[in-house]
């Protein structure tokens, strides 16, 4: 991963402003509105891994998630003036952009079955437990069989750490509808993994 200093060097020959790293996401977006490329680089370094992980889980393809992540951040650059601080968190807005772009891509290309993320994409350490790995792989596999909107809901709440209310904003549905999606997904997962969970 590129460091803040490296990212700053990529966008500007001006000396990097060390205080940028201390700013909140919302303050950085305010600077991006003034065409501050270093503020954009700062946000990119802060959020790229997370959004790429989310997109990789949604699409199952590293090249698709690269393209979608790029398009997501370019939209942030282009549309920074449409972000309203205080209405939603920046990360919620960012995920909403990524989600909408992914749905658009699914519509254009048709819904391909999503493959589980390759074990190479999970960075297991030296103390990697084979049984745990198999269990994780099994759950990853079951996740790919969930209907698209249920998978999105589970990923947003369990992987990306959003509350039900935030996940509902990202998916563009009401909180009750989001909870229904989560309930159906959890029932399916429990049914598929019953021998592990009991």
């Amino acid at each position: 991963m590129t460091s803040y200093a490296q990212a700053f060097a990529l966008v500007s020959t001006r000396q990097a402003n060390p205080h940028l790293q201390d700013l909140t996401d919302e303050e950085l977006v305010a600077r991006i509105r003034q065409n501050d490329e270093q503020a954009f680089a700062c946000l990119l370094v802060r959020h790229l891994n997370s959004i790429h992980h989310y997109l990789l889980r949604l699409t199952g393809s590293r090249s698709d998630s690269d393209d979608l992540a790029q398009e997501t951040f370019l939209r942030v650059w282009q549309k920074a003036h449409t972000f309203t601080p205080g209405k939603v968190r920046f990360s919620t807005w960012l995920h909403r952009i990524a989600h909408n772009l992914t749905v658009d891509q699914f519509r254009q290309r048709g819904r391909n079955p999503v493959s589980a993320i390759d074990a190479n994409d999970k960075h297991f350490g030296p103390d990697f437990d084979r049984a745990a790995g198999e269990l994780h792989e099994r759950l990853s596999q079951v996740l790919t069989t969930l209907p698209e909107n249920q998978r999105h809901a589970i990923l947003l709440c369990h992987q990306q750490g959003f509350s039900n209310k935030e996940a509902a904003v990202i998916l563009g549905v009401g909180v009750r509808a989001l909870e229904s999606l989560l309930a159906r997904a959890r029932r399916t997962l429990k049914a598929e993994l019953t021998e592990v969970l009991t």
């Binding site: 990212a7 490329e37 790429h52 992540a69 370019l74």
Partner: peptide, 10 residues
Amino acid sequence: ATPGLERRIL
């Protein structure tokens, strides 16, 4: 994320 993706975006 994929190495070099930040550079590509920037």
